[in-house]
Computed example of a mutant assay.
Amino acid sequence: MRETLRITEIFHSLQGETSRMGLPTVFVRLTGCPMRCTYCDSAYAFTGGETRHLDDIMAQIASYDCKTVCVTGGEPLVQKGVHLLFKRLCDAGYSVSVETGGGEPIAGVDPRVSRIFDIKTPASNEMQNMHWPALDDLNERDEIKFVLVNRADYEWARELLQEKRLHEKAPVLFSPVWETLPPQDLAAWVLEDRLPVRMQVQLHKILWGEKPGV
């Protein structure tokens, strides 16, 4: 297995999403993604980056003196060397999560890693590239995320949630697209429909705006 990864950035910030929201976290953003979601906020990670050895990556992570790590992208699972990074991080005692866009198999991810699985909605324009069998591999350590553009996305996600009983597989997150879907609207819909989901907003954007490195 390759001991190098193409890295866009490594930084220390507060986790802005998921049940870990607010926790100081080291983010490892890998380069490259096969998807092109309409609302993507990390397109700068599609190309470029720097090839770095795992020893170098681990050393920078350790320098932040923080035991919570989020591996993200781009799409981190397209680089097969990421599995060795997962193993090394978990062996070193880090609490690790990975944010995956939903287009790649997840069964091979180290079972100690929490997998944040993003289900693409119709308005993302990437539903056709979802790896739907991955839903069967999710468990209570993982989280399922829907990024919602509009009311139609919400209704589609609601129906899938109820049809597949997704909340019985893993905690489910509903997230409004930043400055597109008013969070107050999404909150009202979730309450009205009594959905068993966690609504979230992107804390890092509230604190620092939409930019790299936060």
Rank of each mutant, 00 (worst) to 15 (best):
V82N: 06
S97I: 13
P76H: 06
H53V: 13
M21W: 00
L85V: 14
Y94V: 12
D91W: 01
P34W: 12
F27W: 05
D55S: 10
E17W: 02
G74Q: 06
T72A: 04
C40R: 00
A92T: 14
T51Q: 01
T18I: 11
T51M: 02
G93E: 12
L85R: 09
L84W: 02
R88N: 09
Y39N: 03
Q79P: 06
K87H: 11
A45P: 05
V78H: 01
G16N: 10
G74V: 04
G93F: 07
T47Y: 03
E9P: 01
V78F: 02
D65N: 11
K67D: 15
T72L: 01
L54R: 12
F46L: 12
L23W: 13
V96H: 09
Q60E: 15
E75D: 10
I61K: 10
E50T: 13
G32Y: 01
Y44S: 00
T51F: 00
S42W: 02
L85P: 07
C90D: 11
R52P: 00
R20L: 13
R52T: 11
K80F: 08
L14A: 05
Q15N: 08
S97N: 13
T47S: 08
G48C: 01
C33H: 02
T51K: 01
Q79N: 05
F86R: 07
C90R: 15
V71T: 14
A45Q: 09
D55M: 06
K80Y: 10
V28P: 08
T18D: 13
I61C: 11
L85Y: 05
C40T: 00
C70M: 12
T18L: 12
S42R: 05
Y44D: 02
A62P: 05
A59Q: 15
D56G: 01
K67H: 15
S63G: 12
E17P: 04
V69Y: 11
V28T: 09
F86Y: 08
G49L: 04
T31W: 03
G48W: 02
R88D: 08
G93P: 10
P34K: 06
C37D: 04
T25W: 08
Q15S: 08
L30P: 03
D56Y: 01
H12G: 07
H53N: 07
C37V: 00
A43P: 00
F46R: 00
L77Y: 06
S95T: 15
D91T: 14
L23R: 13
K87C: 03
S95R: 15
I61R: 09
G93Y: 07
C37S: 02
T72D: 09
P24A: 09
K80C: 07
L77H: 03
H12V: 04
Q15T: 05
D55C: 04
P76E: 11
C90Q: 14
